[in-house]
Design a protein around this nucleic acid. Structure first.
Lengths: 201, 201, 201, 201
DNA sequence: AATGAATGAGGTTTCATTCAT
DNA sequence: GATGAATGAAACCTCATTCAT
């Protein structure tokens, strides 16, 4: 296997992946026929199986690449801006930036990240772990350094942050992805920090 | 078809619905074979089709009944406690109480509410509308009466509230539904009101 | 079983039979659901099975009654007019008159008399036998008495007569049964007698 | 899909078609299971659907090919022998020759050409149109040139000819297809020309 | 490596028939 | 006798996957 062959492989691999994202976004995982993914990618049905073990492997790969990108970008941003408030801001921004680039990709992720299939769920869980750990790290550091308010349950906070980001992405997708998702970063960040309650004395 | 017949029907109707919830919770919508739903409900395969148009109709019915229950309970609680803070508290409580009763039901709702099948998505969207309208009503009233802080974007707040509730239910399900979900009401409510940020001067 | 009960039975029996003719005319034998026949007849599904052994028995009964009527009428007319030319004329007239009364009935007979199911085919064959024998009788007598031309193969002639009658009924049905079928008797009779060829020297 | 692929397809296409004719001849359209057609053709069930849209499409294709063959052969023979008497003779011969080659094929055609399913009926009607037009053409020309007798109703004549041919084929099939069908051409032709009536003065 | 024709297991749905009421 | 809810066998068709070329 030489460099040229490898480059060709990589191109085809990504072509199939992109095609899968497109088809799955329209039809969902179960509705996405391998034949259609292949056609869309411009390869033969059998070729798909040279790059992926089976259909599930395609979905896993899509999720892995997407989640990996979010995690990587957010991690890098956090590294660049270790201060908790800034880190949280960057985490949200990283999430929105990654998914905001491709509504189809976002749709596939949002829909299938909550797989009922235990096998996939386990894998998704593994992929998300660094993200959740990062969130916990930020929250704990923020509490220790006092930029966050008096002790709260980190798990509840984590769920609020993740749930809010998630729902924001959903709203963006299901209203047609017409605006710039990453532009939502500031208002979401602000809302998470301050909540909806009246000013405290 | 008279009332007695309908009441007799109702028993079997709910038996099939319950069975469907159980089977779908384990295997997902696509993995749930009608034959298994029928067997679990103690009826013949064909009987399912006396009560439901087709498999999709079973799912829609589950969602309709569940979402309907959440909406009804929350609406009733809001009516009993019109004051925005209390209403929000009750809305969360209603949501958690309904889904907290049956982890299987919650799983089906949480997983399949995101089904990308446009037909189902559209229907779910319609069912959720009263809920979202209620949330908006509460938020607007709270802003007007000053119990919520200076003007914020109601849509962002709504997404935060809905996303946080959603994610809290998810966490409950995916950690095995071992604790009382409705007991989370207070901490979630508190977190939504105050956010995670430090006290403002 | 008293007279009233018997009269009621007979009424229901014929109601079901009529309903079956209607439904089968529209949907064909296989497309005719027993439930629809029952509904159309104003009885419960199960009631059909009090009067008929099974679905096939309904079809057989329809065919038997119809063919029986044709055979009986034609036989009676032949008895009244034993002269071969007149007898043939009456046979055609009897056929057209019976089927001309009910296009649905005619449709069921024309379409299903050729059932590929060997069991039904056999039964229809038995029912038609008196008809074919009558035709042969008329043809032979006509040859003996010299009203028909010099000896021809009676089987060929029988097929021509029967095929022509059959096709005439078909044409009537499939063009919408808009005209009086029995009015075709004369032209068909004439055509069968004279053929299409030019006058012989 | 190139010519070679198409030619390769053609072999399997015809194998399935032949198998369908065989199975349908025995069991009728509704009784012919796709699985049995596939097994008889030596292919997998799914393969059938690579060549035909669905089961109905198989029947339509059988009818189309058969009727097409009759029409083509008869048309060609008519072209070779334009004189009306000869053309009629050739038309009958073409019909008998085509169906006389395969009793199963003949059975399927005779039984299913009368399908009550309006979709199929419509299609068959379309396929038969050239045949009926040819018959009309022959009859009109024969009347004009005086080889047929003084003006008669062409439609009645057409029905007699078609009905007689039809019934002759039926008789051949249902008596076991034991003799050479095309050998019937002369007697049928003669009977149609002369009718059964005694010599006219 | 790439192809795509072929496979065949498996699931939804229909509907003739039964039987407890 | 009449009902009609329930039954469950049976069949069409789909589509992920394979493998000879």
């Amino acid at each position: 296997m030489n460099l040229i062959a490898q480059r060709k492989d990589a191109a085809k691999y990504h072509a199939i992946l992109q095609s899968a994202i497109k088809v799955m976004a329209v039809s969902g995982y179960h509705g996405a026929q391998v034949a259609r993914i292949a056609r869309e990618a411009g390869v033969a049905d059998g070729t798909v199986y040279l790059y992926f073990k089976n259909k599930e492997d395609i979905l896993i790969s899509v999720l892995r690449e997407t989640i990996g990108q979010i995690v990587m970008l957010s991690t890098w941003l956090e590294g660049e801006h270790p201060e908790p408030l800034m880190a949280l801001h960057k985490l949200i921004e990283g999430h929105f930036t990654t998914l905001g680039q491709d509504p189809n990709l976002a749709l596939v992720l949002q829909v299938h990240v909550r797989q009922s299939d235990p096998v996939i769920r386990e894998q998704v869980s593994d992929m998300m772990r660094p993200y959740h750990r990062m969130l916990d790290r930020i929250l704990l550091l923020g509490q220790e350094t006092g930029v966050f308010r008096e002790p709260f349950d980190v798990r509840i906070a984590r769920r609020m942050i993740f749930g809010t980001i998630d729902e924001t992405v959903n709203a963006w997708i299901f209203t047609g992805a017409k605006y710039d998702l990453s532009a939502q970063t500031d208002v979401v960040y602000d809302m998470l920090l301050r909540g909806i309650g009246g000013d405290r004395k």
